[in-house]
Design a protein around this nucleic acid. Structure first.
Lengths: 225, 225
DNA sequence: TAAACATAGTGTACCTGTTACAATTATAAA
DNA sequence: TTTATAATTGTAACAGGTACACTATGTTTA
């Protein structure tokens, strides 16, 4: 009985989403070892005795992608006895939205972005984990301006709308989107304009700097009167 | 390193909420063993190798309370290295809403309901787990008719309103509540009336029987047109 | 330098849902 | 029959969401 209890292993796995080439993409790593050697998987690793789950997720993310200081949210814990073909591994899944440019992944072909709409075969139950993460991100998005984690520091409203549309998987009305976006707490209108477009320049916006200390600082719920 | 990985223990802990004596209460068990011997705790137990987390939660609930076939929802996984004073125990918390009458707990003084507004000192981080569970229940309640898990098969709208008020911790307008409640999908008006009150009898309602198979069958989101 | 082009930017009417609010009805008890 | 208590009912104002099409501005090109 004691033996039975003691042989679980605990990992964290992290779904990292970004917008790249006009599509929603997830960061995958090609596994170097069995099981599922050669298959793609979301970054993950064992939880150490000295760290809590959030810390483990942060550390693993840093180790695998060199990304630091990002908001990670615990998603769900997956514990099917057969999810790992060899041992009993329970994994606590996290997810994050980040800017693709913040990650340096040119070093190796074994780590790369993949469109969520066209995933390769994945190791373990990672497809299920990614799907669940998309569902949660969409739910979250309906309430809070989550998408700004995906945007550059300065961005146009059209870029912001594009991000929402890619996550939600549907197109939005421009006027209604802008009306609502402009009500977002913390959105700051700048006196600068984008110069990338060869047409009419668009006004740039940014978000007020928010402290990353509090756990949900990124998610500014609209105040209820 | 391998050793370090292998010594986590995994438990499930279950927050069981009910309405009893006009207040929201949680089921607690007095611990028989160290650590925290004699302190109250929410029911929990180790996850076995052969079962997934949902199954472990169901089994533990059944063992401790004899409650079966109830909708349990995974809440959050708590993994602070210091949450257990002796070993490293990561716990996956679940919660359930049930009818107090469905549990037989007269057998022992070591298992009892406690008002969530007036909890005794609790073992481990169980106070945090209960608070988080209340928060989630309230969020859920705003979207879905969760509360019927707390109600008898046949109930009055006043009873239903009471349940919502106790969970939300605030009083609601009677007319507005009834207007909205009557729109709830699956609510059935009966041709029976309550006889408990010594005043004007109230009409009874029930919910259509719903299959418990699908994971979120209990939570009927309002359809979006 | 003028016309064409492409994207940025803007307002209104309607519908839906939410809120605030008070009088009448039905039964049991006195 | 009166009284007490809880059940039941509707409406007007307001807020928020949706649908919908044209004008403005800078760049490119002829």
């Amino acid at each position: 009985m004691f033996n039975e209890i003691k042989t679980h292993e605990i990992t964290v796995d992290i779904v990292i989403l970004t917008i790249k080439n006009n599509s929603l993409q997830v960061l995958l790593i090609k596994r170097q070892n069995e099981p599922f050697k050669g298959k793609w998987a979301i970054p993950g690793g064992y939880v150490r005795m000295s760290e809590n789950l959030d810390e483990a997720a942060m550390r693993v993310l840093k180790e695998k992608t060199n990304v630091d200081n990002i908001y990670l949210e615990q998603l769900y814990t997956f514990g099917d006895p057969l999810r790992h073909p060899i041992s009993r591994v329970i994994t606590c899944a996290y997810f994050a939205l980040i800017r693709a440019e913040d990650i340096e992944i040119t070093s190796t072909p074994d780590i790369d972005w993949h469109k969520v709409s066209n995933l390769p075969p994945l190791a373990f139950d990672h497809k299920e984990i990614i799907n669940y993460s998309l569902k949660r991100t969409r739910e979250r998005l309906e309430m809070c301006p989550v998408a700004y984690q995906l945007l550059n520091e300065k961005f146009t409203l059209t870029e912001m709308q594009k991000a929402y549309e890619l996550i939600m998987g549907k197109s939005l009305d421009k006027r209604n989107f802008r009306k609502k976006a402009l009500q977002t707490e913390g959105l700051v209108e700048l006196d600068e304009f984008s110069k990338t477009s060869s047409k009419r320049p668009a006004r740039l916006y940014k978000f007020e700097t928010i402290k990353l200390n509090s756990k949900r600082a990124h998610f500014i719920k609209k105040e209820k009167k």
